[in-house]
C-alpha cells in the first residue's frame, strides 16, 4: 500500500477507534493537525506537541510544576503521598477541588486555614505564589494519569532467549522468511523493545505514531499478481484492494487498476504469516521470541 493511503486510513481508524477513550483539547489537536498539514516533513517537536494536545497536559508549565513538587513533598507528602496519590490523607490527583483549582483559588484557603475537623493543619506560611506552584504540580500529576498515550511501557524483556530461538526456527517458522544474520541482523539496535515486540507480532506502524506524524517504518510492500481474462498476468506492488477493485504499481512504475470481477488476484502479503501466528502464540512464546530478538544487537 502507498504510504499516503496508509496515513489516510490510519487517521480514519484512529478517529473510529478511540471511541470511548480520553485524549483532550481537540481544538488544539486540530490546530496541530493543521500545522502538520502545512509542512511536508513534520518536525519531531510537532509530534511531541501533538501528543500533548491529543492527550491533555498541553498547558502544564513544567518549571512551575517542578517548583510545586519541591514545596509539596516536604509540606504535604507525609499525609497525601509524595506523588499526591493519597496516604493517610486523601488522593489529590483525582480530587474535584484540585481539578477545579486555578492558581490556588480553591485549594489556597484549604492550605492556609487547614481542615482541623479532619486533622489537616494550616500551612499559613506558604505564599500565594507557592500555592499556585503546588496547584500546577497537582494538575501535572492529574495530566500524567489522564494522558494514557504518554504512559511509559517498560520491563518487557522477561523471556528465555534460547527458547525464543527454538520457536523462531521451529514452530514459528519465522526462518522461512527471516534470518538472524540477514534481514534481522542488529534488529535490536533499530527499535525500542515495545516497537520490536509490535513489529515481531505484526509488522505495521503503530497508528498513534502515524497519526502524530512521527517517523515510522512503513509496512513492507505487498506483491500482487493479477491474471486477466485473456490470460495475461500483471505483477507489481499492491496499491489498493477492496471488494470491487484491485490496483497496483507495475514494474515500469505505472499505476494500473482492474475490476475484481474480471480478474483473478493473487496477493503475497508478507504480513499474512504474522497474522496466522497471532492466534497461536502463547504469551510465554511471545516473551521468549522478543528475548531472542533482543540478542540481535
Amino acid at each position: 500500500m502507498s504510504s499516503h493511503y496508509f496515513v489516510a486510513v490510519a487517521a480514519l481508524l484512529l478517529f473510529a477507534s478511540i471511541s470511548s477513550g480520553q485524549a483532550d483539547q481537540a481544538a488544539n489537536a486540530e490546530k496541530q493537525k493543521a500545522n502538520r498539514q502545512q509542512k511536508d516533513a513534520p518536525q519531531k517537536e510537532d509530534a511531541g506537541d501533538a501528543l500533548a494536545a491529543l492527550t491533555g497536559g498541553a498547558h502544564i508549565d513544567k518549571e512551575a510544576a517542578e517548583r510545586g513538587r519541591k514545596i509539596f513533598v516536604p509540606s504535604c507528602g507525609f499525609c497525601h503521598g509524595n506523588d499526591a496519590h493519597g496516604k493517610s490523607g486523601p488522593d489529590l490527583v483525582r480530587s474535584a477541588s484540585v481539578l477545579h483549582d486555578n492558581k490556588g483559588d480553591v485549594i489556597g484557603p484549604v492550605i492556609q486555614n487547614g481542615r482541623p475537623e479532619r486533622g489537616m493543619p494550616a500551612f499559613s506560611a506558604l505564599s500565594a505564589e507557592q500555592i499556585a506552584d503546588i496547584s500546577v504540580f497537582l494538575h501535572s500529576q492529574a495530566a500524567d494519569v489522564s494522558n494514557r498515550f504518554a504512559y511509559k511501557i517498560g520491563d518487557l524483556i522477561t523471556g528465555d532467549a534460547q527458547k525464543g530461538a527454538s520457536f523462531f526456527n521451529g514452530d514459528g517458522h519465522c526462518g522461512s522468511c527471516h534470518s538472524a544474520s540477514g534481514d534481522l541482523a542488529h534488529v535490536a539496535t533499530k527499535y525500542e523493545p515495545v516497537e520490536l515486540q509490535r513489529r515481531m507480532l505484526y509488522p505495521a506502524p503503530n497508528l498513534i505514531d502515524v497519526f502524530l506524524g512521527r517517523a515510522v517504518t512503513p509496512p513492507a510492500p505487498t506483491k500482487v499478481t493479477v491474471q486477466l481474462l485473456s490470460g495475461e498476468r500483471v505483477s507489481g506492488t499492491l496499491d489498493h484492494l477492496d471488494e470491487f477493485t484491485v490496483s497496483l504499481r507495475d514494474s515500469a512504475g505505472w499505476h494500473r487498476s482492474f475490476p475484481r470481477e474480471s480478474v483473478t488476484v493473487d496477493v503475497q502479503d508478507p504480513r499474512a504469516a504474522h497474522e496466522g501466528l497471532l492466534p497461536k502464540y502463547t504469551d510465554q512464546e511471545m516473551h521468549d521470541v522478543l528475548a531472542y530478538l533482543e540478542t540481535l544487537k
Partner: peptide
C-alpha cells in the same frame, strides 16, 4: 483484532493505568 495489553502504572493504579498496542484493524 489483536492487541498487546501493557500494565504501566507505578504505585497506585489510576486512570487507564495501562495501554494497549493495537496490532491490526
Amino acid at each position: 483484532s489483536y492487541s498487546v495489553f501493557y500494565l504501566t502504572s507505578e504505585g497506585k493504579a489510576e486512570g487507564f493505568a495501562g495501554r494497549d498496542d493495537s496490532l491490526n484493524y
